[in-house]
Design a protein around this nucleic acid. Sequence first.
DNA 1: ATATATTGTTAGGCAAGTCTAACAATATCC
DNA 2: GGATATTGTTAGACTTGCCTAACAATATAT
Lengths: 163, 163
Amino acid sequence: MAKEQTASMEDYLEAIANLREEGKVVRVKQISQVLNVKMPSVTSALKKLSEEGLVRHEPYGYIELTLQGDKAANDVIGRHKALSCFFSQALDIDPLTAEEDACKIEHVISPLSLERLTKLVEFIQACPLGEANFPKRYKYYLEHGELPEECLLTISKTKQSSE
Amino acid sequence: MAKEQTASMEDYLEAIANLREEGKVVRVKQISQVLNVKMPSVTSALKKLSEEGLVRHEPYGYIELTLQGDKAANDVIGRHKALSCFFSQALDIDPLTAEEDACKIEHVISPLSLERLTKLVEFIQACPLGEANFPKRYKYYLEHGELPEECLLTISKTKQSSE
DNA sequence: ATATATTGTTAGGCAAGTCTAACAATATCC
DNA sequence: GGATATTGTTAGACTTGCCTAACAATATAT
């Protein structure tokens, strides 16, 4: 079973997978730029990840993820995507902030909470209330600080419902 | 202006404020138990926080937050509460997991996202849809994996709405 | 093909935060 | 009030992850 990685090592794995995804050849320089660290930091991280069998890397050569490394990277990326999706879609946060928060929180959130966040996004997107659907009502609330008329109107209409 | 604290130092501030809140006399031992670290770690953290003017602590004496320290601690605690509230109320997460996640995320989340999470909880609680209100619908979705009838029914009813 | 620029590595230092072991102060208990 | 238990501190080691400086390999360019 894959050993638990630190936030830092997860960042390296994620960066490698993302660069690979973009079709670029993965090199130390690139990683260092993406993660905003100096090259020696990358070298030493790669050494560590190699020893753990997550990365293949001969000195001065290209950098690849092993199968295991790829799995670990995809796990992190999955968390990242779920979070940034939640922030932008459900909370209507700007893309930059959504990304930044996802980058931090992806390393610490529990599987359960992540799953529920995902479900919440799904629910909000799926539950159709026409013009008065969730995101619109929520945005109205964000902008005006009070509930939209639809919500208030509904009170009387649902008074006959039991409990 | 209060200097940015590390996650670790924020934990110490938070722990001190919480112990104080419980009416207990704050001592090194207590903090070490709450935070699951050994006593020397506490001593050295207190030294650091004292130097920064956030904590008052004479050797072998009691531990107090300065005004500035109290402000910093309350800030952290505010973040913590907002998060654990969101997890339990909005996502229906069990209290333990909600706490654990709040403890981690409180150190890294952006002010904007925190504000929006809070607003989401407010909205969910405030927007009254009677029996078919948000949390109930959401819980139904969590349990059954599909939308409750109310949601589906609404589709046709709202078809006349423009856009 | 040789000089130059770029990229990568090694070596070693530093800061944060933890720990253990040893010692010091305080509290407790006859 | 002196022995013992508890609590707190100091000293020093260790880990993680970053850095700079110096050196080595590779790529580029004339």
